[in-house]
Design a protein around this nucleic acid. Sequence first.
RNA 1: GGGUCGGUACCCAAGCGGCCAAAGGGAGCAGACUGUAAAUCUGCCGGCAUUGUCCUACGGAGGUUCGAAUCCUCCCCGGCCCA
Length: 422
Amino acid sequence: MDLIADLQARGLIQVSTDLDALSARLAEGPITLYYGCDPTADSLHVGNLIGLVMLRRFQDAGHTALALAGGATGMVGDPSGRSDERNLLDDETLGRNVAAIKRQISRVVDLEGAGELVDNRDWTEPITLLEFLRDVGKFATINQMMARESVRARLESEHGITYTEFSYMLLQANDYLWLHDHRSCVLQVGGSDQWGNIVSGVDLIRRARGTTAHALSWPLLLAPDGTKLGKTTGARTWLDPDRTSPYQFHQHFVNLSDAEVAQQLPMFSLRPLEEVRGLLEDHDVAPERRRAQRELADEITAIVHGVDAADAARAAGEVLFGGDPTVAPESAFVALRGEVPTSTFASPDALDEPIDLLVTIGLATSKSEARRLVDQRGVRVNGTQIGPDQAIRDLGLLHGRYALLRKGKQSYHLVEISSEAG
RNA sequence: GGGUCGGUACCCAAGCGGCCAAAGGGAGCAGACUGUAAAUCUGCCGGCAUUGUCCUACGGAGGUUCGAAUCCUCCCCGGCCCA
């Protein structure tokens, strides 16, 4: 199976230029392709991850991957999928964002060997307005530009569209042209919301250079109910561990619905297609085990945050959802610290009065409530239900310092005994 | 300004002298069930040092009464009607 067929089978190709022509080109030898994202924040999110993984797939197949950080286009703002004008970012912010994003890209894409991070600011900034109008503007008709979905939507909206954002697609088209000229890039990939901008580049290259450039895009991710997920809907899961901890990142995938994981596992996973299919078949037999979700979460978290972080995130998830806390590794508790409310006490004496403790750490708002909870068997410590007169200390501390309190199913509180506490 | 109806716990809403920490519903919390889902069923649902003929609480402040969410007075707020 060639690369294109593999991508198709994974559901990664929604629209494309002539696929046969692209396949033929790939068969001739390694090519250079690019995927771009704008540094509008100091972190990428899971949506961008598909693009990075895509670059990786081509790299693994022997091709050269260019990851483009849109220092220039990020300044202008992409009107696609937005109902209102974007705030322009200043130089300093953009520079910081590009640096932060580069680290994230390098976790997925090899930027040292057959790969490179490029910033369109490098070639966009020097261009004079007259040059741009002559070399790019001459090849684009307003008629075509107005027909683009992203532009039309904005023309119809009450906010309108500024000339600046209207120019966005030409800037992106120019990126492709420049990379075509200077890096022999012949393929651009992106999400289907980028399709309009992408084909603008393909058109420009054909008109300006008379050569064929290729493009393909993947479908937008499905929402939990199986419908299309809008660009702005749904909480974003970031690649930056300070924005989305490895635990939360891991959980994002564990919590995918069956419909979502069926779509996303093939799209994200670097495993061979056969293995992916087998996994999904196993999953269908016993969906309640969430095998597909867990495998995907483990794999992707390991790529983005490293194997150790992925292991800790998985262990932490097991502790919180059904697993036995007493056999969890210490790394699970370290990961948990900060994910669930955590209190630190200097002495294990704090554990002697369970009712008082529940109130102190805020798991119950009054002693009455705390007693009620305990009477109703609603409180567990390290997985064991406790009774009214039971000292938590008797249950022992895990790893010499942790006690995991659980109220009901969802509410947790980690108590840590540390001599360093004041 | 006059008249009238009303203001009850997180929300809606019963109660109209003691059996009222106060019906019912919703929300919330817990238990069972469950796939880290939904539905369903069950329990709880003001506070506490002494769980009590305890404290706090029925718009606010006083009063009547052995006893008031319930009766009286004044005040504040809202709906409706009249001017």
